[in-house]
Design a protein around this nucleic acid. Structure first.
Lengths: 341, 341
DNA sequence: CTGTTAGCGCCTTCAA
DNA sequence: TTGAAGGCGCTAACAG
């Protein structure tokens, strides 16, 4: 809209050469104190702001990082993203965000877009393992940090320990006498889902039990879907006496279904939320939840990326594991013996 | 990390000139079908991806827009941002996000950063009216869309009708007989807070009443703060019989305080949430809420910006008002006559 | 329709 | 320490 001031004009105003002005502004190379003062004064007078695009052109670095998630509004992502953004901001990086909406095609296109935009690095959330070729090519181009995704041993990433979380939560329910436990988590094709299913199953197995496979629901992350799915479970025979479910849309749907059926929590049905949000904490009864620190996940992801960005040389891949802990609240109780009627 | 393929190499491979290759790739100007085919084939063979930075350098357009909010994780923003991102993605724009954390200083720095990065446009959330000079300079540089903020008549923006929302909600509580109604909203210095206070007060005034000024709480958007603030209100004399509060951290804090004091909702105390989230819908009892469509806010904001981006000529400023509607649920009831004991 | 040329604004050699 | 010059990759203007 308006012609912006270039470094050339600043140099002229300060009566030095363009090169000196550049060095003065970037404090690089040898510059006299006098030149620095003159240049700074001129820059201030003219309202000079360096052009990041032109600078990137030369330096090959945009100081922009990208982050790819399936849905920015998912509270389990949103908190992480904020934390990451804060860390990046402090380090002088800006954050480019994009939602894949769980579409593999869009995901590939967005990765290409990030590459075309020359982001310095990428935090990758919701990627299908199937696209390993895309990921590998990407990782050879720029530093990548995986968010709870398996991209092989050569990938750096931060991972929530969903396996042990699910194990602990399931043990807790088994201890309360529950046997018909429904596990509702999206994406058995993604790491979190796989890990949860494994932990869930192993908790049964270590007691010589077998989880009912029809109670492992690979739910879509949608409230409506979870609602109707829970409804059908509750109205069927051998209805679950406990739900272990992802604490976002799915928890919302399950709670709605329980309310709809008039089931008392925890009297008739127990509920554990995977992930601890406002909803789980404030719901009445408060919901026992698997908690992990979202801020830490985001901050660590940012730090891992920044570390790789600092060293030019590719550093060793790192895997940081974030542990979960079970927050016992009011939503779980001993199983009720079925009353035969 | 790896040398990327340039358009020059593509041109050589396709045996055309650099200019023709560029025109073929961008489908601009006159190019023969034959040239297009040859160039596309060469580009595919070499794995060419246009360099967005270099392109921006020439075209003066980055096809990146910025968005500034106080907190990305605020569910009332997060849903908007996702919607906006989706709209921008469809239009070929990428989204650069930044959190101000409600610090005016950081806000200014981030605006400058966006300018330095040459974003094509900006969606501005949490800005203090005081920095009108910054805003005006900004608006002369690039298209800006205000999000629920007053930047004067010359600014384009999308605004939630908080005034009428608060008016309607307050009338509703007054109709139930409540007189001691606490209004808890952050930022009386920002548009939403001001509008809510005005609507709240006018609802009293139209019945010849006066709101108790000590019940208009300019709350910080923090659960802990809202918790202790609500606690002190509840333990004081003339305790409020109803709360009208922003539906994020503040609602959470108020609900916690009510639970802590053992107050029954709605039997002893009524609650209305400003903004409708999972929490308000699923809480027991479900919370009567002022609802507006966050997706629409985000989408409209994106559309307004895109419209300005399309026309090179500065178009007329537009103000879109999003209406709210009251969703009556279970959290409000008639006021209980105080039992004198 | 195509090739050539001239920068966009900046940083970074290379000489002086 | 400084100035001059080259070029990052691309597009737009201009001849041909």
């Amino acid at each position: 809209m308006k012609a912006r001031v270039t470094i050339r004009e600043v140099a002229k105003e300060a009566d030095v050469s363009l090169g000196t002005a550049s060095r003065a502004i970037n404090r690089s190379g040898r510059v006299s104190e006098k030149a620095i003062i003159a240049v700074e004064k001129a820059a201030r007078k003219l309202g000079y702001e360096p052009d990041a695009v032109a600078r990137s052109m030369r330096t090959r670095s945009t100081r922009v990082v990208g982050i790819l998630v399936s849905d920015l509004a998912n509270p389990l992502y949103a908190a992480m993203i904020t934390a990451a953004e804060t860390a990046f901001q402090a380090a002088g990086y800006s954050l480019l965000v994009a939602s894949t909406h769980n579409e593999t095609k869009r995901e590939k296109a967005l990765i290409d877009l990030f590459r075309a935009r020359r982001v310095d690095g990428l935090i990758l959330g919701p990627c299908q393992t199937e696209s390993m070729d895309v990921i590998n090519r990407l990782m050879s181009d720029m530093p990548v940090v995986a968010l709870d995704r398996d991209f092989g041993d050569s990938a750096t990433g931060v991972h929530v320990d969903h396996y042990n979380g699910a194990l602990e939560a399931t043990r807790y329910l088994l201890d309360l006498g529950h046997r018909n436990i429904a596990l509702m988590t999206p994406g058995s094709d993604l790491r979190p889902g796989r890990e949860r299913i494994a932990g869930f199953s192993d908790a049964f197995k270590e007691r010589g039990l077998e989880p009912a496979s029809q109670l492992i629901r690979s739910a879509k992350s949608s409230m409506e879907f979870a609602f109707s799915d829970a409804l059908s479970l509750l109205s069927g025979k051998d209805r679950p006496t406990a739900f272990l479910c992802l604490g976002t849309r799915i928890l919302a749907g399950v709670l709605q279904a329980l309310r709809h059926c008039g089931h008392q929590v925890p009297h008739e049905t127990s509920v554990i939320s995977i992930g601890d949000t406002d909803l789980s904490q404030l719901f009445t009864p408060s919901i026992t939840a698997l908690n992990w620190d979202l801020n830490i996940v985001g901050t660590v992801a940012a730090q891992l990326l920044l570390k790789q960005l600092d060293r030019e040389t590719k550093s060793e891949p790192e895997r940081i594991v974030i542990t979960t802990r079970l927050m016992p609240r009011e939503s779980c109780g001993p199983v009720q013996m079925p009353i035969r009627g």
